[in-house]
Computed example of a mutant assay.
Amino acid sequence: MNADFLDAHHRHWQDAELLFGLGRLANADHLYGVAAECGLKRLMHAFGMKLTPDGRPQDKSDRVHVMEANRPDNVWDRYDTYHSGLQGTHYSLPTPSPFLDWDVSQRYAHQRDIDAPRVKPHRTGAAVVHALIKKAMVEGLI
């Protein structure tokens, strides 16, 4: 199967919002992180990130999540490598990353450990990426 970061971003964002509205915070939180990751990778591709024939990032440094424990590299930071050119000047992200306490491995955590105060910044971060995706679509970047 080929990677489709744009479709994955929209799908994960929509499901996260649906789950958030239903009070299913643990799964919503996980999907907010994945939605942000997919959206950023799609924007990175628009700004020059090369992909393999199956749609994965060619550079292994770009094959990271929005945040991972014990790893200094993450998509939120890698994004700066690509958007810094003239075309990406109006596509900046807030710093620091709202995902500093998010980790892909939290999908294994007990749901009682994921509460609303923890989810809120992740939802906001994913919303920022979602807005950048919409902007890029309107402006014909993607």
Rank of each mutant, 00 (worst) to 15 (best):
M49H: 06
T81L: 09
Q111G: 03
N27I: 11
E139F: 09
G140F: 08
M44P: 01
F47D: 12
Y79S: 03
D4S: 13
W102K: 06
G55D: 07
S61F: 00
R42L: 07
V138Y: 08
G39Y: 01
F20G: 01
S97W: 04
H12E: 12
L40I: 13
T89R: 15
M1F: 09
P57E: 01
T89L: 14
E139T: 15
R78N: 05
I142C: 13
P53M: 02
T95M: 07
V104G: 00
K60V: 06
N70H: 10
D7C: 14
R112K: 05
E17D: 11
H10I: 15
N70E: 06
A36Y: 14
L22W: 02
A28C: 04
Y79T: 06
P121G: 13
N27G: 11
A127I: 02
H30D: 04
L19K: 13
H90W: 02
E17H: 12
P98L: 13
R11D: 12
E68H: 08
S84F: 02
I133G: 05
R123A: 12
A127R: 14
P98W: 09
R63F: 00
D103N: 09
D62W: 02
R56V: 10
D7R: 15
P96H: 03
R56C: 10
M44F: 02
R42M: 02
S97C: 07
A131E: 15
V104E: 05
G23N: 09
L25Q: 08
V34I: 07
V66N: 05
A126I: 06
A109Q: 08
T89G: 08
K134L: 15
L43T: 11
R71T: 06
G85T: 07
H110G: 02
S105A: 14
G125L: 07
G33K: 10
G55C: 09
C38K: 14
G125S: 06
